[in-house]
Design a protein around this nucleic acid. Structure first.
Length: 175
DNA sequence: CTAACTAAACCTA
DNA sequence: TAGGTTTAGTTAG
């Protein structure tokens, strides 16, 4: 697995990917050191820290593009952030949910229940909550655009303040 | 209309 | 089996 860190106006973003696509993408950390720690922790938890050969030509992944879009995103610009993802570390159900979440356009929000209905489980809203909570590819899979059915913000594993901040970047205000 | 509480529903470890 | 980024229904104020 390849690893890298991208600097944006909001901080240092760590990410990891394979030939198949992105494996994880963290939220901005305030220091380069923190970002490195997070990247290593993420890679470790996936048990894929070994064999990070730098020599292998794994540039099917458009690094330049994601770097540009991430910087733009935190500068408040509208970007698609649609990149290939390596779903190998997710469950089938989680993949279904997350791929559906990927379809939510910039600046829009959807409820957990709507996602559940869209994948054929009208009563599985809570399961959807668990699935988006397992999302390792933040921003690329815009799980922050999934909120509760009554317009409330719902939850966010990495900290609710982040969810608010991300939505604010897209012009959405809650609470 | 809001707040509080309950039950139902579904996936993951 | 417990618990999570839920939701719909009921009841009280």
């Amino acid at each position: 697995m390849e690893k890298a860190i991208i600097e944006t106006s909001a901080g240092y973003i760590g990410l990891g990917w394979t030939v198949s696509g992105l494996v994880f993408l963290n939220l901005p950390a305030s220091t380069l050191h923190d970002a490195e720690m997070e990247v290593n922790a993420a890679a470790d938890s996936l048990g894929a820290t070994k064999g990070t050969a730098k020599g292998s030509q794994v540039n099917q992944f458009d690094f330049k593009k994601i770097e540009c879009e991430l910087k733009s995103f935190f500068d408040g610009k509208t970007v698609s952030l649609s990149f290939p993802v390596d779903w190998a570390y997710h469950t089938d159900f989680q993949r279904k949910v997350l791929q559906r979440v990927c379809l939510i356009p910039w600046g829009k929000v959807v409820s957990y229940g709507e996602i559940a209905a869209a994948i054929g489980n009208p009563r599985g809203a809570r399961a959807v909550g668990g699935a988006v909570g397992s999302n390792r590819v933040l921003l690329v899979v815009p799980c922050h655009r999934v909120i509760a059915h009554n317009g409330k913000i719902g939850g966010f594993g990495s900290g609710l303040q982040w969810k608010r901040k991300l939505l604010k970047l897209e012009g959405i205000y809650i609470g």
